[in-house]
Design a protein around this nucleic acid. Sequence first.
DNA 1: GTCTATATACGGATAGAC
DNA 2: GTCTATCCGTATATAGAC
Lengths: 225, 225
Amino acid sequence: MAKNKRTPIDTSTEEKIKEAARVVFHRKGFAATRTRDIAEEAGINLALLNYYFRSKQKLFELIMVETTVAFFRTMDIVLNEKNSSLEEKVAHIVSNYIDLILKEPDLPIFMLSEIRNNPDLLLQRLPIEQVIMKSVFFQQHRQAVGEGGITEANPLHFLLNILGLTLFPLIASPLLKRVGNLNEEDFHQLMEERKKLIPVWIKSMMINSDYKPILMDESKLKEND
Amino acid sequence: MAKNKRTPIDTSTEEKIKEAARVVFHRKGFAATRTRDIAEEAGINLALLNYYFRSKQKLFELIMVETTVAFFRTMDIVLNEKNSSLEEKVAHIVSNYIDLILKEPDLPIFMLSEIRNNPDLLLQRLPIEQVIMKSVFFQQHRQAVGEGGITEANPLHFLLNILGLTLFPLIASPLLKRVGNLNEEDFHQLMEERKKLIPVWIKSMMINSDYKPILMDESKLKEND
DNA sequence: GTCTATATACGGATAGAC
DNA sequence: GTCTATCCGTATATAGAC
């Protein structure tokens, strides 16, 4: 905050290269990306890339970390909302991820590919485990299970189901468009439908139909800001 | 069949290279794979690769086509079973894909990555659309919708839900293992659980609970062998 | 900071001996 | 068919002028 002296619209060369690198790396992955592609995308000279970032590898790691953090922040924010019910959180996760990935279609495959190539390097340092397993979301899940409101005790199944229903069509979108003969417009509409449908499906598959929404935060969770 | 004169256990050099190429391409993708990696994996000399397959590109396309065909054959066989109900087909799809991908963990990300890099080349020629949209599975779905047995009229949602619940945990397995602190054994067990759970979930989320299983083939489908 | 020119390394592919 | 040695294009990275 204190030393943030960048221009409001940060169109500096360094920032242009970073943005271009993000786009190209996301689209083609590390190995298939040439530094020339990035320079061209950024509209700058190739030598400047090394001037600012030393190497392709260093630039990539920078992008990779930023991307991963951003991806999990989307989840972190929703999973730890203080004033929403479990059902509301489900709807938020679905909606936020659909919006995010419709805007950044290359994000999931990029992350999954590159994490696979470097499983430890990226995952060992980030506190993903903490963020998810100790989240308000999981606390609420545990509480609902205790009260007989949820039929499946393993919270991983619960989260996997939400993410599977939400992310899989986005991940497999090239195939889906081909199989269903959908253009971009149709595909977006299908995903908008799923924003409404998935929370309903999750409810009927995992939440007892006669369970009263007493799984509000008020009862158990303290707001310690 | 007629000209199949290969040795029973085909351990020929050509076959060794192909198998090695399959493994390495699946693990690292086209761009990150060096022909030297394949040669090493196969335990043969680098020059032999070009002797048998002319180029890295040609070898890759061979592997890619074989992989894609095999992947969709798994779906094709189940989707067009003549003597199974819709619910049975759901269970078969889930079980078959879980078994397949536990054995070949790199398959999904490999296919999705490479299809993305070359959307037309691979998908335009294969009759994926026909296989899926005109399958017995989809006919049965349509019939069940007509009889009020299924609540969601769009068959794409139906198939996406099955595949999303099944494939997403497999696709995201490195992340899942980290988040849930699962070793390989735990992970396999989780997927075995899902073999049983997913068909039940699908039933409760998309199939009317009081729907009689009259959606058998006998009534409508002809066996025209 | 930004450019041109170039050094250096790496990977795909082939020549030619065996 | 299989090997060794090598060629050659391409991509990363740097030197050095401006």
